[in-house]
């Protein structure tokens, strides 16, 4: 399945995909996008790389590690990192929700779990932009989606 065309296209698409997914992530609150879509896009781009260059590409070329067997791949290799990623994502999402409660506790107001808020700020170069607390939660969503999808793809792919 690996052809020169596929490899070339992949080289081209890979950076584009990452940039687009990053843009999706940032603009999600106001324009089409968001953590979920960005996460799926990132995962699909990496999956494309898997298709074009084989399953060890991330392991060997990105992290410079050697893997022997499939089990090792799952238990120690990059899958371990994917697992850490989605676990951390869940933790971030929950922690963001708890932070609201903590803030309420510190300021003597009752704020329920996962309450979000936003502020507008003026930043040089970007102008008048919105800073939403929901971005923390969205980051968690992004991490979970990327971690979980890549775990599944690489494990199933390794079969």
């Amino acid at each position: 399945m690996t052809t020169v065309i596929l490899r070339t296209i992949t080289r081209l698409v890979l950076p584009l995909g990452f940039v687009v997914s990053f843009a999706f992530f940032l603009q999600g609150h106001n324009l089409p996008g968001g953590g979920f879509i960005a996460g799926v896009l990132t995962a699909s781009v990496v999956a494309l790389a898997y298709l074009a260059y084989g399953l060890d590409v991330v392991e060997e070329d990105v992290f410079g590690r050697e893997v022997e067997t499939a089990v090792e791949h799952v238990q120690h290799g990059v899958v371990r990192d994917y697992q850490t990623l989605y676990a951390a994502g869940l933790a971030v999402a929950v922690a963001g929700g708890l932070a609201a409660m903590l803030y309420g506790y510190l300021t003597d107001t009752t704020i329920p779990f996962m309450t979000q808020t936003f502020r507008y700020a003026t930043v040089p170069l970007f102008g008048h932009i919105e800073l939403a607390s929901a971005v923390v939660f969205d980051l968690g969503v992004y991490a979970v989606v990327v971690g979980a999808l890549l775990t599944i793809i690489s494990v199933v792919g390794a079969e």
Binding site: G28, H29, N30, L31, P32, G33, G34, G35, F36, A93, V94, G97, F113, M114, Q116, F118, Y120, E130, A132, A134, F137, D138, V141
Partner: peptide, 21 residues
């Protein structure tokens, strides 16, 4: 209330954030 113009996304992360979780 949420400061976002993308209703779908605001619902996902804000109004119904617990569902997304």
């Amino acid at each position: 209330q949420a400061g976002g113009h993308n209703i779908v996304n605001v619902i996902l992360v804000d109004f119904r954030g617990l569902d997304t979780l």
